[in-house]
Design a protein around this nucleic acid. Structure first.
Lengths: 198, 198
DNA sequence: AAATAAAGTTTCCTATAGGAAACTTTTATT
DNA sequence: AATAAAAGTTTCCTATAGGAAACTTTATTT
């Protein structure tokens, strides 16, 4: 292997440069990550070797991006160094909303109407939030307005701001909620909110 | 390779059974995961092969846990199948609140008072929620009640139910919020809420 | 600043991953 | 139910990962 080869073996390894031409911008930094984790823990290659059961040389090569470790090696790394697997290739988490906030004054949210609901989406300036807050006015007055359960990934929390609604969910009896009442539920279970106000 | 070998190659591969005797309970299911993802997307091995740029045979062997894919292969999988890398070895998230809900009537939450806030924790019956909803009455009337910024992991959404408060955050001017106003912010950035009601 | 020790890298070899093609099994079609 | 087509598996080979030991570099001690 020539000197040039060594340096360029995994040059900047752009992920997914496959025939479909799907290109992912992120770089493969498993070596860099590993070295960072090891040095932060003040471990030598020898010590890391003992903990992971991997050869000193193997660790060195991974750190210098000379080889692409197998999944089983990655598992030994995570286990031996007491970290979660994704830490090996995920840069220290940067929340997408890092250092940002978004204030939405009453009634200034982005409107979004459907047949059954009138939503006011809140904090729409912030992208990639973990929560999607919104205020809703409920029009639906019975199950038939929907036809079937609403289901989707994630969890929902609701708080009644005015009037009276019924929360219908699979497996449970309907719950009548008035101002100040709230509920939290798994959204993969069928759910609906209907209005029982006048 | 004997029939027995084939079956047991990666028998139930308990991770991290290394000399430090650190034992991780989780199983290595990258093959199972991959197969699940592929079939859910109604892809044949051939199609998956085209998308990822990997050989049909390689995919088959990975799915049957006959080989341990290298990191670079895992990247091609994630990229080609349009998934996040950790999805390959993390079982489809089973929310801890699966199939459950928790209704909290007004004033029936669990009280939790501090010097500066009077909290009413909501939906405390459900454990391991992704969100922690609560109503708070704010006592603090200036920064000095705290001494320094509040900081923690995650994101916060707040909605004013009555009175008037000021939201103080690093990097931003204070925001005055009245009933119906809301805000969303990164909680790792210093933040405080103080009361400006009478 | 030599000598020694410790940490890290490279080489060389063996084991295993990944690809091409043959083979087997399953599904669809007549 | 026989045939064809499609999907999946296995074989066989080549390329590359991983381990042992030699080698180089960096830090430490005298």
């Amino acid at each position: 292997m020539s000197e040039h080869d060594k340096v360029d073996k995994y040059p900047s390894m752009t992920i997914g440069d496959n025939e479909n031409n799907k290109r992912v911008v992120e770089k493969a930094t498993i070596g860099v990550q590993l070295k960072a984790i090891r040095t932060e823990n003040k471990l030598t290659l020898e010590e890391a070797s003992k903990r992971t059961g991997l050869a000193r040389s193997t660790l060195s090569k991974i750190e210098n991006e000379q080889i692409s470790p197998t999944f089983s090696v990655m598992q030994k790394l995570a286990s031996g160094l007491n970290i979660e697997l994704p830490q090996l290739f995920t840069k220290p988490k940067e929340t997408k909303v890092t250092g940002r906030r978004d204030v939405t004054l009453n009634g200034q949210g982005r409107p979004h109407a459907t047949l059954t609901y009138e939503h006011e989406l809140l904090s729409t300036q912030l992208r990639n939030k973990k929560m999607m807050p919104y205020k809703s006015r409920v029009h639906a007055r019975n199950f038939d307005h929907f036809g079937e359960w609403v289901r989707h990934e994630g969890e929902e929390f609701l708080l009644v701001l005015e009037g009276e609604v019924q929360l219908l969910t699979e497996f449970y009896e309907p719950a009548t909620l008035v101002v100040g009442d709230s509920a939290y539920y798994d959204a993969t279970m069928g759910h609906l909110v209907i209005s029982t106000s006048k």
